[in-house]
Amino acid sequence: MTHIDEAPQPTKEVAPAQGREKKLPARDRATVITMVVVPLVLVVLLVWVPALLSVVLSFGKWNGFGDLDTIEWVGVQNYEDIFTIYPAFWPAVQHNLIWLGFLFIFPTILGMLLAVILDREMKGSRFYQTAFYMPVVLSLALIGFIWQLFYSRDQGLINQIFNSQVDWYGDPDINLWAVLLATAWRHTGYIMLIYLAGLKGVDASLREAAAVDGASEVKTFFHVIFPVMRPINMVVIVIVVIESLRAFDLVWVINKGRNGLEVIGALVAQNVIGEATRYGFGSALAVIMMLISSIFITLYLRTVFREERTR
């Protein structure tokens, strides 16, 4: 009887959800509330408060000495300086974009190709899988060091073998590409593994059906398999965007993000971490980086939500 009484009554009690929540025993309600509040507090404290404080700090000039009241508020001067007289900024933006484009084109396609080949279970595919994935396990700092052995102008392997004198890490026209190659070496394995997992998850009957219909292997891949892997493609896009925006470790290991290797992440670090303590200026750079990231995040979320709506 009580059940029937509590059936939704759209006339007066407009919030049936609330009515149902009331049904939860006090302990469960407490659980739900804790479950919401604890992560909320963590996110607010660890993400939003620092982010907002960075925004506030970006309008000041402070070298980290003394209390917060020693901050000299300078309005938008930091932003003005960044856009007008800071020579490293525009190259950094450009390099981040090149990074993004490069990662999208080369390692992603190569990783996909490798995944398709390895998925055919040829002889020794396990070995190749491990070999291609190996760089992903290494830290970028270590990768920087490994490639230094190849790229060093006077003592490096590449110049020794080809008897050339190319200044791979020092020439600002070349070093970004040299670094991108090293990044790609790592990134390809990563993408490969994700696609490999995706391919394994594709229903085998789809391939059979395609084969029965007489589709070629290439056609099957592009018209059947690839569209089915849409969620995987989404994940890859997100990973590539994130990786290229936070590009930092490798250039930092090589030359602290100077001389042709400027990226925004490294500029923030140069100004804030380390001996230099331009907290206001560094925060302003970080805020700009945050804004750029949020453009991509918004685009991504919009696509995801639109997809969910159409589903």
């Binding site: 006077d154 200044d167 020439d171 600002p172």
Partner: peptide, 14 residues
Amino acid sequence: ADPLGRTWQEAATA
């Protein structure tokens, strides 16, 4: 030439 790709250790070795 090309000092920007060379560490001081490499220069010292030279």
